[in-house]
Every structure is written in structure tokens, then in C-alpha cells.
Simulated scan of single mutants.
Amino acid sequence: MTWGIKLILLLAVLIRTILTDPDNWISEPLSVFFSVGEEVVLRCDSDLIESDRVVWYRRTPEGDNVFLDTKYPQVNLAQDLDGRINATATRSFLALSNLSLMDTGEYWCGVFYEGVCVSVTKTLLLVWDPFGINSTFYRVYSSLMACALLGMVCVLITVNLKTRRRDQASLKTRWTAAQTQRRSRVEEEREEVDEEEKEANDEERVKKQKGTLR
């Protein structure tokens, strides 16, 4: 079997494992940020043993391909990564140097044992944006905006409560004034009635006195 056919079959197995059997993932997908020209270290999260075969696969804007196979290290699988790859002796980590924007994408580490893919680790390699959603600036800005929004809400609630209390106090004052005015009017009417009754009684008494004198 030629090298090309072997690589195609291996790539097909790895892609099938990634797409159809996500339970093989040892951990959640990782996110690694980089700046142009920097070096990053990708991790293959697995309990590696001496007989394991590790295959690194990537999915970038340039396409999908296997760029490192520990079983066939002599085969140059990725021309653009020539001289930029440094695999550790334990094969758990892979260093990529002199990164560019074209290196952005998904990187998969597949661990094979006796021809079977036993684990897959996914890493997202992303360009670091100092003002992006994952930056410290964005997190601080979001926190400040959240605090400012919370402060505005508190101010609005306080103003609303004060306005309601002032309206309630004004309504209570008007109601008290109306009650006082009503009581005053009732008392005045009662005094007028008492005065009229007194005058009527006086007139009646005067009439009786005049009748007695006659």
C-alpha cells in the first residue's frame, strides 16, 4: 500500500472519529490565542503509552490535512510547517513557531492504539485581538458597562421611589386638608343650627312672657 493511500485512510478514520464519536474526547475543546510571529504549544490530552501512535490533523482556511504522524516521522506531511514544528519526547505536546494568520484554525490530536483511535483532543488556534471579545480590555470594558448599567437602574429605581413617596405624601396632605375643611364646615353648620335653635327658644320664651303679662 502506498504512502498516499495510507494517509488518506488514516485521515478518513480520524475525521470519522471526530465527527461521529465525540465521546472519545478526553477534555473539552481548548482555545489557544497567538500573535503573529509567536510560538504556541498544543497539548494532546491523553494517557500516552509507548506503543501509541499520535497523529496531528489541522483544519485551516488553506484546507484539511495531517501534518504530523509519529509512526512515520520521516514523511514530510506539511510543507508550510517545515522547520516550525517541535514535538516533545513524550509526544503529549507540539510546539508551533513563527505563526501567521494562515495558521488560524482547528487542530486535532488523535491517539491510536493497535490501529484504533482511542482519544481525540481539539484545540482552536485563534489570533489574539487586544480589543476583541476574549481580551482583557473587553472583559474590563464589559464589567464597567455592566456596573454603569446597574448604577443607572439603581438611580432610576431610587428616583421612582422618591417620586412615588412625594406623590403619596402630597396626596395624604391634600386628603388631610380636605378632611379638616370638611370638619370645619360641619362644625360651622352645627353652630349655625345651635344658634338658630337658641334664637327660636328665646323668641318662644319672650312670647310666653308677654302672654303672661296680659
Score class of each variant (00 low, 15 high):
Leu101Ala: 10
Pro73His: 08
Ala169Ser: 08
Asp23Ala: 13
Glu192Val: 07
Gly110Ile: 00
Glu196Ile: 11
Asn86His: 14
Val153His: 08
Asp129Arg: 01
Glu192Phe: 03
Glu187Val: 00
Glu39Pro: 03
Lys207Leu: 14
Glu188Ser: 10
Asp82Asn: 12
Ala178Asn: 07
Trp3Cys: 07
Thr2Ala: 11
Gly132Thr: 04
Glu199Phe: 05
Thr212Val: 09
Gly115Ile: 05
Glu114Pro: 02
Thr212His: 12
Ser184Ala: 09
Arg205Trp: 13
Glu191Arg: 15
Pro22Thr: 04
Val120Met: 11
Tyr107Ala: 01
Glu191Ile: 11
Asp103Gln: 02
Val120Tyr: 00
Asn76Leu: 13
Leu99Gln: 04
Phe67Tyr: 11
Leu81Cys: 03
Thr70Ser: 15
Thr180Arg: 05
Glu62Val: 11
Leu19His: 12
Asn24Pro: 02
Cys117Ser: 09
Glu197Phe: 05
Thr163Asp: 09
Glu191Trp: 05
Asp47Gln: 14
Arg43Cys: 00
Leu77Trp: 05
Phe93Tyr: 09
Leu42Lys: 01
Lys162Arg: 12
Ile49Leu: 10
Thr104Gly: 06
Lys6Tyr: 14
Glu191Ser: 10
Gly132Tyr: 01
Ser92Arg: 15
Thr158Asn: 10
Arg58Ala: 08
Cys147Thr: 14
Gly37Tyr: 03
Leu156Ile: 06
Trp25Met: 13
Val118Gly: 00
Lys162Thr: 09
Asp194Thr: 06
Leu150Asn: 12
Thr123Lys: 01
Val140Asn: 12
Ser27Phe: 06
Leu42Ala: 02
Phe67Ile: 04
Phe112His: 02
Asp21Lys: 13
Tyr72His: 13
Thr163Gly: 06
Glu38Asn: 12
Ala177Asn: 15
Ala169Ile: 06
Arg84Leu: 14
Ile8Lys: 15
Ala178Gly: 05
Asn24Trp: 00
Glu196Ala: 11
Gly63Val: 09
Gly63Tyr: 07
Val186Asp: 07
Leu101Thr: 11
Arg53Lys: 11
Leu19Pro: 03
Pro61Ser: 08
Glu188Asp: 07
Pro73Gln: 05
Arg91Ile: 09
Ala177Thr: 10
Leu96Glu: 04
Val186Phe: 01
Arg166Phe: 04
Thr163Val: 10
Asn201Ala: 15
Leu94Thr: 05
Lys210Glu: 13
Asn134Gly: 01
Gly4Lys: 13
Ala177Lys: 10
Ile157Met: 06
Leu68Ser: 08
